[in-house]
Every structure is written in C-alpha cells, then in structure tokens.
Amino acid sequence: MEYKGYKIEQKDNKVIVEKVEDFNPVHVFDCGQCFRWIRQPDGSYTGVACGRALNVKYRDGVLELSNTGIEDFKSIWFDYFDLGRDYSHIKEKVMKDEIMREAVKFGSGIRLLKQNIWETLISFIISANNRIPRIMKTVDEISRLYGCEIEMDGEKYYAFPSAKQLSHATLEELEQTGAGFRCKYIMNAAKMVNEGKINLEDVCSMDTVEARDFLMRFQGVGPKVADCTLLYSGTKYDVFPTDVWVKRVMEELYFKSEASFGEIQEFARDYFGKYAGFAQQYLFYYARENRIGAK
C-alpha cells in the first residue's frame, strides 16, 4: 500500500518501507541525538522509543522495522523518524559553503528524531559534562529501575519512565545509576512535572526564546541542554546547541579566532535561520568523527 509517498508492507511482525532516501542508521543513531539505540552484529540497530522495542535495518532505500505493525508505523514511527520531511531540501538550504558541503556529505543519512520531550529533557540533563557510553548506561539503568518492562524476541527491554514513575525515586537509588551530581536535577524535574508545576507540552505554543527560558526553569538546565531538548524532541529546529566543544569547532571552522557563545548563537541564527538545528547536527557529527576542534 502507499502511504505519504512511501510503499509500505507488513510481513509478520515487520513493516517494510520502500523509497526511503537520506537515511543511514549509523548517522541517525550515532550522531549524538539519542542514547537508547544499540548497534547489532548484523549492522541493524535495536532500541526503545515511545514505549516500544524496535529493530531497524536499512539498505538501498528500504527501511525494515521489526516488532511493529502498520498502524504503529503510521501513528508512531513515521513521525519519530521524521519521514514526512524532504531532507534533500534541508541539505540544499544548509550547504551554504564548502564546510557545510563536506559536513552534509559526511553525515548524509542523518534524520532528526522526534523523541519524547520528557525523556529528551532527562537524557540531556544526564549528558552534562558526560560521555556518550556513560550517558547511555545511566539512561538504560534508570529505565530498568523505574520503567515498564517490554519484551522483544524473548529479550527484556524497559521503557523510559514517566515523570510519575520517576518521582518515586530516592537519591540513593538514582546514585546507583551513575547519574552523579545530576541526580538531584532529575528528582527535581520529575517532581515539578508530576505535580503539574511545569507542563512540557506548553513549549509547542511558545516561540524559541520563550521555550528555552521555560525549560531553564528546571535545575541543571542551561541554554545548551534546553536547546538539545527542543531540537531532539522535534519541537524547535532553529536552535543551535552550543557547548564548549561546539564553540571550539565554530571558532576553528568559521571564526578563525575566539568567539563568545552569544556571537556563535547570533551567527547561526543569521546564517542558517530556521535550519540552524539541522546545520548544527551535520556539523557536530562531521567535526566529532573527524576530531575537529579536539584538544
């Protein structure tokens, strides 16, 4: 059957999607935007998202999603993998110079996932001053302790806990997950959301500056974590998450001298406009994999 430009078919517990372009699982899952997808020996990726466990394979324009069905593809995975967006158009808009042409070529299969904003917020609170393997381990352990159990092919997986589920955590338990000094921030966020003091869905109706300031009401959330939360939840695409390392990358590639965070944000806003988030992801992945800006 046809669905929004794709040919889709269900075989047992798999959904086969044909005519998928601009998609590379390595680029999508290893570009730093998510922490729950693990590469398998056959090159596929298995992960947990939206309360489901899923295996993803891709080859020659064919996307194969295992442990799901047509209805879940339409209601969940189509949006989650941002399949409704023309990434060839995005690439044209961000390839404004030779640097971006190289970055886009290198990460040509990146798609920005539309992740749950609550999970994204906590994941990027955990990411502060942290390395990806440790972030992944902590997020997985939090899910194991507080999330609902899911089964796929006889294996147990765990959904990321809701704010209500996580609000039952104790500081001592959270410390066992490796979250370190971030434990108190996680507990504070769970309490604020569970008690209705902050409704994360409200950011959708705000402009970007308002939304960033709104998220910074949470303890442990600065501009970078707020921007990551907005970008990787598919809420705002005109943000340009900037930490110390991205700052060095921009100084090396564009400014050729020291630049303030404010100058980098202003440059990205003026230069890339509403596509700033996409540009940042291509640049981030390209620079990280090629050790640009590394010291």
Rank of each mutant, 00 (worst) to 15 (best):
Q265T: 14
F278L: 07
M250C: 14
D270G: 12
Q281L: 07
K274I: 15
S257M: 09
F267M: 05
A287M: 10
Y275C: 06
F267C: 06
F255Q: 06
F267L: 03
L283K: 06
A279H: 02
G262T: 11
Q280V: 12
F261T: 13
R269I: 02
F261A: 14
A268S: 14
G273E: 10
Y254D: 03
G273L: 05
S257G: 12
F267D: 04
F261P: 04
L283W: 01
F272M: 11
D270F: 01
A279M: 02
Y254L: 06
F267G: 01
F272L: 11
F272R: 11
E251C: 09
G277P: 06
F261L: 15
G262F: 00
D270I: 14
S257H: 09
Y254G: 03
Y285E: 05
R269M: 10
A276Q: 03
F278A: 12
G273V: 04
G273A: 01
S260R: 00
G277R: 01
Y286N: 00
Q265N: 15
I264T: 11
R269S: 15
K274A: 15
R269A: 15
E258F: 10
E252L: 10
S260A: 03
E263F: 04
Y286M: 02
F255T: 08
Y275K: 03
L253M: 08
E252Y: 04
E258Q: 13
K256I: 05
E263I: 08
F284G: 02
K256M: 02
Q280E: 14
M250I: 06
E252T: 12
G273T: 09
R269Q: 14
A276V: 06
K274F: 12
S260N: 02
Y285D: 03
E258Y: 12
Y282E: 05
E258D: 13
Q280A: 13
F255A: 04
F261Y: 15
G277I: 04
Q280F: 07
F261V: 14
Q281N: 11
R269L: 04
Y275G: 08
K256A: 00
R269H: 13
Y282P: 01
F272S: 12
Y271H: 14
G273C: 07
A276K: 03
E251N: 00
G262L: 02
G273K: 13
M250L: 12
E263L: 07
G262I: 05
M250R: 00
E258C: 07
G262M: 08
A268H: 01
K274P: 05
Q280T: 11
E258M: 10
Y254F: 06
E258G: 13
Y254H: 07
F272H: 10
Y271G: 10
Y271P: 06
D270C: 13
E258R: 14
L253H: 06
A276Y: 04
E252A: 14
K256C: 01
D270Y: 07
Y271I: 10
A279I: 07
Q265P: 00
D270K: 15
Q280D: 08
E258H: 13
A268T: 02
G277D: 02
A268D: 07
Y275I: 05
Y285W: 05
M250P: 07
F261W: 03
S260M: 09
R269N: 11
Y271E: 14
A268G: 11
A279N: 07
E263T: 04
F272A: 12
G273I: 09
F278T: 07
S257Y: 00
S257C: 11
E258L: 08
A259G: 00
F255C: 05
G273F: 05
A276I: 01
